[in-house]
Amino acid sequence: MNVNGKWVFHQGGVDVTFDLVQDQDGGLTGSGSWSGDSGTLETGGGGVFENDIFFTVNWRSGAHGRYQGSRGPDRRLSGVTFDIAHPENQALWFTTQAIPD
């Protein structure tokens, strides 16, 4: 599964845009932003394995958002995100764009 490029994650009424770079081993780097904040993916803190994706974003506000999800049969990504310091604060997310073949 290749997730290189720009993605919009729809979560809790907010659209979060990610620009993801995936290396040959599945590791992820990149950045994210939404109307209230921006941040970068934690180095070594994310990756793609088969149909699963996970990464942590260090937001400028100080929050650390963990994203976990997978590719569904429709080739779209979906999952859950939470604040590492407050894991009870969770939101579901999904993409409307599909993973290219």
Rank of each mutant, 00 (worst) to 15 (best):
1 M>D: 10
2 N>G: 11
3 V>D: 00
4 N>K: 04
4 N>Y: 02
6 K>M: 08
6 K>D: 06
7 W>N: 02
7 W>E: 02
11 Q>F: 04
12 G>W: 10
13 G>D: 14
13 G>A: 07
15 D>I: 12
16 V>G: 00
17 T>Q: 08
17 T>R: 06
18 F>Q: 02
18 F>T: 01
19 D>E: 15
19 D>H: 12
19 D>W: 06
20 L>I: 12
24 Q>W: 13
24 Q>R: 15
25 D>T: 15
25 D>K: 15
27 G>M: 12
29 T>M: 05
31 S>E: 15
31 S>W: 02
32 G>W: 00
33 S>E: 15
35 S>M: 11
35 S>A: 13
36 G>T: 12
36 G>W: 10
38 S>M: 09
39 G>Y: 00
39 G>M: 03
40 T>P: 01
40 T>I: 06
40 T>D: 14
41 L>N: 01
42 E>F: 04
42 E>N: 07
43 T>K: 14
43 T>F: 06
44 G>T: 12
44 G>L: 08
47 G>E: 10
47 G>Q: 11
48 V>D: 00
49 F>H: 12
49 F>A: 09
50 E>G: 07
50 E>D: 14
50 E>K: 14
52 D>T: 11
53 I>R: 01
56 T>H: 03
57 V>P: 00
57 V>F: 01
58 N>G: 06
58 N>P: 02
59 W>I: 04
59 W>Y: 09
59 W>H: 04
60 R>L: 13
60 R>W: 04
61 S>M: 11
61 S>T: 09
61 S>L: 13
62 G>S: 10
62 G>D: 15
63 A>I: 05
63 A>Q: 13
63 A>S: 09
65 G>A: 06
65 G>F: 02
67 Y>N: 03
67 Y>W: 10
68 Q>M: 08
68 Q>A: 07
69 G>T: 04
69 G>D: 03
69 G>E: 03
69 G>H: 03
70 S>P: 02
70 S>A: 10
70 S>G: 11
72 G>Q: 05
73 P>D: 04
73 P>M: 05
73 P>T: 09
74 D>I: 07
74 D>E: 08
76 R>K: 14
76 R>F: 03
78 S>T: 12
79 G>S: 07
80 V>A: 05
81 T>A: 08
81 T>C: 09
82 F>Y: 10
82 F>L: 14
82 F>M: 11
82 F>H: 11
83 D>L: 09
83 D>F: 03
83 D>C: 04
84 I>Y: 00
85 A>D: 08
85 A>V: 09
85 A>Y: 05
86 H>Q: 12
88 E>L: 08
88 E>W: 11
88 E>A: 10
88 E>R: 08
89 N>A: 07
89 N>I: 05
89 N>P: 00
90 Q>L: 05
90 Q>I: 14
93 W>R: 01
93 W>T: 01
93 W>Y: 13
94 F>Q: 07
94 F>G: 01
95 T>K: 03
97 Q>R: 15
98 A>K: 15
98 A>M: 08
99 I>V: 13
101 D>H: 05
